[in-house]
């Protein structure tokens, strides 16, 4: 992925996988994130931990422009301030109660979260259309070996399986897993899309077999 010295962008999810009014778990090298979209459509990335009793905010719920923790309903704004503590309805929560937030950019159907403060915006995905995301139990090197191609500096790999060409945006996670966002050229039919979805499943089988063999053989 493109990196400058002050920070970099991680592709964490597809826009289509984060409808308005929902929250999902996501990961960057800076830790776990509660990635959420308010009812009005604005995306935010909050640290995935409520400071009250440590509950994961990705288990919470979105109402209006706030994200609430499932445990006690503490509500947070997109900038991380705690707006409301239901046990004390009359209380204005002090500023000290807040969650850390991260920069988010959304473009071309992909949501990027910053680690640190990148100088440049996320890479453009010229004319590509997002198809789906999936996780492979294989590292980037192994996926490259399985696909016979290398990823470029944005983490994008052009994979050709038989008749299908697809673009894989790779984001290596912990434990040697890789989050793979599958993108296709703009001009594609339903048949292409289904075929590509199956092709990436095949690639996953191949990459995971290869990874298992590599792990076994040291």
């Amino acid at each position: 992925m493109s990196a400058d010295t002050t920070g970099f962008w991680t592709p964490v999810a597809l826009s289509a996988d984060l409808p308005s009014g929902t929250v999902i778990p996501a990961h960057t090298r800076a830790g776990s994130i509660a990635l959420w979209r308010s009812d009005s459509g604005r995306v935010a990335a909050s640290a995935d931990r409520c400071p009250h009793r440590g509950m994961r905010l990705s288990y919470g719920f979105v109402r209006g422009e706030t994200l609430s923790c499932i445990y006690h309903g503490w509500s947070y704004t997109q900038t991380g301030n705690c707006l409301r503590i239901p046990a004390h309805p009359g209380l204005t929560p002090p500023d000290t109660i807040r969650v850390a937030t991260h920069l988010v950019e959304e473009a071309d159907g992909v949501i990027w979260v910053a680690v640190g403060e990148p100088v440049h915006p996320p890479p453009k995905l010229e004319g590509l259309v997002a198809l789906r995301s999936l996780t492979m139990h294989a590292d980037v090197t192994t996926i490259e070996a399985a696909s016979g191609a290398k990823s470029d500096e944005t983490g994008l790999l052009k994979a050709t399986q038989q008749y299908d060409t697809m673009w894989l945006l790779l984001s290596e996670q912990e434990q040697g897993h890789t989050l793979v966002h599958v993108l296709l050229d703009g001009d594609n039919t339903l048949g292409h899309r289904i075929s590509a979805s199956r092709a990436v499943e095949s690639l996953r089988r191949c990459a995971e077999d290869l990874q298992a063999r590599r792990s076994r053989d040291g």
Partner: peptide, 13 residues
């Protein structure tokens, strides 16, 4: 369970 203050913020409840 954190037994020292700092990690988690209690209220009167």
């Amino acid at each position: 369970l954190p037994l020292d203050p700092g990690m988690e913020i209690p209220t009167r409840a």
